[in-house]
Design a protein around this nucleic acid. Structure first.
Lengths: 109, 109
DNA sequence: ATAACATACAACCAAATGGTTGTAGATCAA
DNA sequence: TTGATCTACAACCATTTGGTTGTATGTTAT
């Protein structure tokens, strides 16, 4: 995954309205206007938020008649988790490296 | 954790320079200027990036003599993972709910 | 056929972001 | 003491972001 994709991913997650939309579109897929009814915001604003989520591949849109159905895309959340796990791995590596150093120190006179 | 804190957290992670700084400050703690040397950017720019990471609690700064030592803050990465896991949980719930519906459907004549 | 609905998209605006340069205050080394 | 280094912070600028309204187009229901 490219840096730009990861950028878009976390940027999309950095807004609570979008996180809420994502949540809703995971639990039950909804049209954009159905989503919009939940928020005190214009339809266009929600449309933009959905577009941001879509650019980040966190949701997909599928045209059904006159409406556009939004559903959460599970794989991308997993990708985000993968990125975070890389950071955690660094800590583990560092911890074990410190342990190794301490072990050799102990062996000294 | 408040919405605003989560906002700041993901927003801080949405820039590749900052992710790189975070990585570096996990593996070995460094001063701000030591970090800055790795990037083709002004010191002030890096200083701002570190400030964003600090506001998100992804790193902490500790004054040591004339320099400011930056180190990664493990707990916050865990928090971010926690947020993502909530989304995954929704999928699991939804999947099991679907399974339950299918099971009752099967029982019908 | 017409009215209501769902979407797309452009234009606009204020505020935030990501960068710059410049200045000033601490701290360390010679 | 003086000079080099590290940091803090302000001012500035271009771009992006998150919202608005307005208009146009396609789809459904009456």
């Amino acid at each position: 995954m490219s840096d730009e994709e990861v950028d878009r991913l976390f940027q999309a997650l950095s807004d609570s309205t979008r996180r809420d939309i994502l949540q809703r579109s995971i639990t039950d897929e909804q049209s954009v206007s159905a989503l919009a009814r939940h928020y005190d915001m214009s339809f266009a604003a929600i449309q933009k938020h959905v577009a941001v989520l879509e650019r980040a591949a966190l949701v997909t849109k599928e045209k059904r008649g006159r409406e556009q159905i939004v559903r959460g895309h599970e794989a991308t959340i997993r990708t985000a988790q993968g990125v975070l796990e890389l950071f955690e791995d660094l800590w583990r590596e560092r911890a074990s490296q410190i342990a190794r150093i301490l072990a050799t120190e102990k062996g000294k006179p």
